[in-house]
């Protein structure tokens, strides 16, 4: 008699935990019942991300680089599971390599994007990049894993924390990734994953006053409504490319310039 498999229940990933949607709602995607995150789930995710921000932003770049590299290690371990959730082994490898690539940027950004400014006067003046805060990410629909990782990594490597709305039609890759994240050293709340309807969650996050930037790269086409909502707290609205690049990171950075007199 053949054994009946124990199936996985796919839930949200918020603040390092795997809750069901507080609304109790699910929707069916890829043959599974997936949590359909609500307004309150989005609120909880932003709260978790805000809570995690000071410590993650304050971690040393070396530490953040290692944590991201550790995430790549965990993904490698779970490569088989991840492969089943996306287009296959090749996509998983590209996703892992991308995480490794961004991991290496953590302690190089300030040298590439900042530096001292030769002001005309007795002052020392330097500009350093800083994370902008809590970033809402609308992940692309496809490719489900590589697309997701390509948007999350440049956001968090500099110290931002993320609330991610996953691919609506192909959410399982994100949920497999959540398990890799949960077993990596990424602090709870740095990455939060919401499955559900983008048309429902996007406007909630775009209007949320405690979200500092929204990445609409994966939103596809029409973003007018999101941009209007984002104006209320002068949210940064980012539409980026799909290539790996330090400029993908800089889109989620602020520049801070510090002056000090030079004298005896």
């Amino acid at each position: 008699m053949s054994r009946i498999a124990v199936r996985k229940t796919y839930k949200l990933y918020i603040g390092g935990k795997f809750p069901r949607s507080e609304s109790g709602r699910t929707y069916e995607a890829e043959g599974q019942n997936v949590a359909r995150a609500s307004r309150k789930d989005a609120r909880d995710a932003v709260q978790a991300a805000r809570g995690a921000f000071p410590k993650w932003a304050g971690a040393t770049p070396y530490n953040r680089g290692q944590v991201l590299y550790r995430l790549a290690e965990m993904m490698e371990t779970r490569a088989a599971d991840l492969s089943r959730s996306c287009s296959g082994r090749r996509e998983v490898e590209r996703a892992i390599d991308r995480v490794v690539w961004y991991a290496g940027w953590a302690d190089k950004l300030p040298q590439v994007l900042g530096g001292s400014n030769p002001v005309a006067g007795p002052y020392f003046n330097f500009t350093a990049p800083e994370p902008t805060g809590v970033v809402a990410v609308l992940a692309p629909e496809l490719p489900p894993l590589e697309g997701l990782v390509s948007r999350i990594a440049p956001v968090i490597v500099s110290g931002n924390t993320a609330v991610v709305v996953t691919s609506e039609t192909r959410p399982l890759a994100a949920l497999e990734l959540a398990e890799a994240i949960a077993t990596s050293d990424l602090p709870d709340g740095v990455v939060n994953l919401l499955t559900g309807y983008r048309s429902e969650l996007g406007p909630i996050l775009a209007a949320h006053m405690d979200v500092n930037a929204i990445d609409v790269t994966g939103a596809g086409g029409e973003t007018t409504e999101l941009e209007i909502l984002a104006a209320d707290n002068v949210k940064r609205v980012i539409r980026a490319g799909s290539e790996q690049s330090p400029w993908e990171i800089s889109a989620f950075l602020e520049s801070k310039t510090v002056w000090h007199p030079v004298g005896v």
């Binding site: 002068v234 002056w259 007199p261």
Partner: peptide, 29 residues
């Protein structure tokens, strides 16, 4: 959390020095 921090001085400006805000103070430098 501010785009410009003046330490032991204030309201200094220079063409070489980026200026601009965080949060609702705007974006871009």
């Amino acid at each position: 959390r501010a785009g410009v921090v003046w330490a032991n001085t204030f309201n200094r400006f220079d063409p070489t020095s980026p200026f601009g805000g965080y949060k609702e103070s705007g974006f871009g430098r």
